[in-house]
């Protein structure tokens, strides 16, 4: 066997316990989307939560903004291998939206304006792990990053944090979303490098 990448040296070694395996840090904020950026005005924005029995609750923009708000600072990990540390967000915890919802569901199916979908266990939306984020770095979330509002589930790879979120369906069975049906992992834990099918 020949030498493996002889002469290659580290130039940006990151703090060991903050960077998941196979990732590198970026100072920018790359955009990864499968299609054009949909334009959704806050005047017609609505988020709908539907349970497995068909019970629905929905929030207009003004109702969302009237809910208790969180500020958080978190690290982001994209399956395309960039990680960004200390991103600052504002939004509403999913615990607030799910409070009092009567459900036996174990999965959540996420839908977005523009047609994007993703899936994850409902448990990953609970207990302070997920938000509907509308503010980034103190400013309204730009459309190319998912504005006016996106799901933010920072403990999973970023494709789970659906941009332009429009709906959450609580389900008894799992169904693969957009990237999940195109070869990406069903769960997507960056610390276990669950990037693609078979990981």
């Amino acid at each position: 066997m020949a030498a493996l990448t002889p002469g290659f040296r580290a130039r940006r070694r990151a703090p060991g316990d903050r960077l998941p395996p196979g990732q590198f840090t970026t100072e920018g904020f790359p955009v990864l989307s499968a299609g054009p950026t949909p334009v959704v005005g806050t005047d017609r924005w609505e988020l709908t939560l539907t349970t497995e029995t068909g019970d629905r609750r929905s929030w207009t923009w003004s109702r969302l903004m009237a809910l208790p708000q969180d500020d958080l600072t978190t690290d982001l990990h994209c399956v395309t291998r960039w990680s960004k540390f200390d991103t600052r967000w504002g939004g509403v915890s999913l615990d607030v939206l799910l409070e009092g919802v009567d459900t036996h569901a174990t999965y959540a199916w996420i839908e977005s304006y523009g047609g994007y979908t993703t899936n994850l266990p409902l448990a990953d939306l609970r207990d302070g792990k997920a938000w509907i984020a509308h503010t980034y770095d103190g400013r309204p979330l730009p459309a190319e990053h998912g504005g006016p509002a996106r799901l933010l589930v920072p403990h999973l790879y970023l494709w789970k944090s659906a941009k332009w979120i429009s709906g959450i369906q609580l389900r008894l069975t799992d169904q693969q979303g957009f990237w999940e049906s195109l070869g990406y992992h069903d769960y997507g834990d960056p610390w276990r490098e669950q990037r693609t099918w078979g990981d």
Binding site: A3, L4, P6, F8, R12, F178
Partner: peptide, 29 residues
């Protein structure tokens, strides 16, 4: 500029040497 990997691949990585790869990846684009 100042990249960790791309300048190495373009300027230093010698012909005849090895590198690890994984793929093909991606099913949408």
């Amino acid at each position: 500029p100042y990249g960790e990997v791309s300048p190495y691949l373009v300027e230093e990585f010698p012909e005849g040497a090895d590198i690890e790869v994984r793929g093909p990846l991606g099913g949408w684009f």
